[in-house]
Write a protein that binds this DNA or RNA. Structure first.
Lengths: 344, 344
DNA sequence: GGATCATCCGAGAGCGCTCTCACCTCCTCC
DNA sequence: GGAGGAGGTGAGAGCGCTCTCGGATGATCC
């Protein structure tokens, strides 16, 4: 914890280079319209003094912060047991860094925090927001809309409010689920069960819908609600085995759920995939490759989702700043692919 | 992506309340030395106009940002497969939020990024930095010291530079390792192997030292280098079984490594804990509780580490800002506890 | 009742930067 | 050779806030 040295200002650089503040400012911001010899002199002065612009002063006049908030509206510990979010964060970070933007992370713990986040966003500290893990009844989108900050959502928000101008990036959950179930059907399986995700999230609902698209008149006994966690998967699998001991396949809403289901199946003496075939969702590598047997699953490019969210948001921010960068960004749904491994 | 409305300024609030800017400022910042009726009037005006202070303008004069950078110097994907970091982040976030500070996340990808991070910290955008996952040869501490930003490290930095004023929070890795190995010895095991972590990190080195403290003249064949990952654990375990088929216990440098080792042991037909007892490190719940059998492991309170780091840093920041808050913060080493489950 | 003092409030400077606008120089062209 | 123009540079205002300092106000005390 060292002590502060007073940092040089534009003024100081200008004095040293023998030019005006305005010229230094021009050079620091790209140097357009300044003649070469002067540019050189200013650069040298900047170097010698170790000048770094004061971001606060700059923001005060430009009204830009070059910072984006990432809001994770996840009250539970689940996000943290789940590499999903970390991967998106990585994608976001890469994209933001590439555009010289900073990432301000806002984790919310419970309801009270929503107000805090709303205030923060409204406070104009950041140029935009990326919002994750929305649940169906979440008040956050309303607050954000009210704050008037450009926003992109991670996953389609299941939100009943004003939809205009809502931009999100999502995977084709429904299509991916269809692929998974069709694959199982293609293997000759007929009693295909589904362990859902937490149904207060649209991704879980969409995957369930995809399952139903294929299993048009599925035995309702074959559907059990899970919660995207391994223990939820275990519980659901036990319930399924009790209700439908004759099932021959399981489509789990995500890989973690599938991992839990696999354990229960093994414990029950059933062989995977011979007795029961299992398909997951996400292709979360550390999980999907490490299960026994390795998991057949629906891959979504999570990091790319993150990167895309950031890109859309930055475009929206620039647009708002008056730069012409094409029309208003619109939502994107990314395709999924089935990855075959040993479990189905 | 809604449009901006011009936000009200202090001036506007002052006009509406019929007072001066200074008075509004006082009220907004706590209201000391302003008489009740005026406070009330100002509060009302703030409310009515929806006034939120402009942080940039404030920072410009106070030189405080109420923001802390979290730097993750981890070039690999490992951090993300590992809930460890996420838990610390959660602890940090809680503590920062409680003190109205924001969290700016800086992820670095490879060497070039270090310069960027150094520049950012030197740029005075944040009041302090929390730095993680340092490797032995990392240039970051030097850069940070040069930037002159108050910093707290997560884990003891294995760094050969100037040590003065370096503050870190760490677990008692060595002591925890000793407990683990002693526990195995107490079970009557004599051929106790160790799969190390990535030895370019001090935590791995310390755990190895702890192992050696107890196994004073251990067969060097019983020590294999791992890398904190499940696959590393598998590879190491295979190597161990080949070299020392008579081993009767394994102390793995972390839970993920232990999980990999467990798989290999099972595949080799050995019973855990009967043939080989296994102890991990971290007590990372989703991992430790889900292995088969559940893992005996050394618990460290990861979230608390994060919270503590943030607390120390904020104290250092306040100190620097001239507020008297006791002496310079010094490093903290948190105790660990052995958690007994089925694997040993 | 007037001097003294504490308390409260407002005027105004200034944080470090950007950006407009006027000026100045040097070409170009008729 | 002089008008017109293009491009470079500097002066200065102002972004929204905090904070010092002096003045006003009213309480206190002899």
């Amino acid at each position: 914890m060292t002590e502060t040295a007073p940092r040089p200002t534009l003024e100081a650089v200008a004095a040293r280079a023998g030019v005006s503040r305005a010229t230094v400012s021009r050079v620091v911001n790209g140097g357009d319209g300044v003649r070469e010899p002067l540019v050189e002199r200013v650069r040298k002065a900047v170097e010698e003094l170790g000048y770094v612009p004061n971001q606060a002063a700059r923001s005060l006049v430009t009204r830009r912060h070059d910072a984006i908030a990432v809001v994770v509206a996840e009250p539970e510990t689940r996000v943290f047991a789940d590499p999903f979010f970390a991967l998106q964060l990585r994608g976001i970070s890469k994209e933001l860094t590439a555009h010289d933007n900073q990432l301000v992370l806002l984790l919310t713990e419970g309801r009270d925090d929503h107000a805090r986040v709303g205030r923060y966003l409204a406070g104009g500290h950041v140029d935009g927001a990326l919002v994750f893990s929305l649940h169906l009844d979440d008040p956050l989108p309303g607050l954000i809309q009210h704050a008037g900050v450009p926003t992109v959502f991670g996953g389609r928000p299941g939100w009943s409010g004003d939809r205009r101008g809502v931009v999100y990036v999502d995977s084709d959950n429904r299509g991916g689920a269809r692929d998974a179930v069709r694959h199982l059907a293609g293997l000759g399986r007929t009693r295909i069960a589904h362990i859902t995700g937490a149904l207060d999230q649209t991704s879980a609902v969409d995957r369930l819908d995809g399952y139903r698209d294929v299993m048009v008149d599925a035995d309702p006994q074959l559907i059990v609600e899970g919660d995207f966690t391994p223990t939820g998967g275990e519980r659901a699998m036990r319930e399924l085995l009790e209700r439908c001991p004759d099932l021959d396949a399981v489509f789990a809403a995500n890989d973690l759920t599938a991992a839990g289901a696999l354990r229960v199946l093994r414990a029950s003496g059933r062989q995977v995939p011979d007795d029961v075939a299992v398909v997951g969702f996400d292709d979360m590598l550390p999980v999907a490759e490490q299960t026994d047997p390795p998991l057949t699953t629906v891959r979504q490019d999570i990091e790319e989702m993150g990167r895309l969210m950031a890109r859309l948001l930055l475009r929206g921010v620039d647009r708002r700043a008056g730069e012409r960068v094409g029309g208003a960004p619109s939502s994107v749904v990314l395709p999924t692919t089935l990855v075959r491994r040993a479990s189905a």
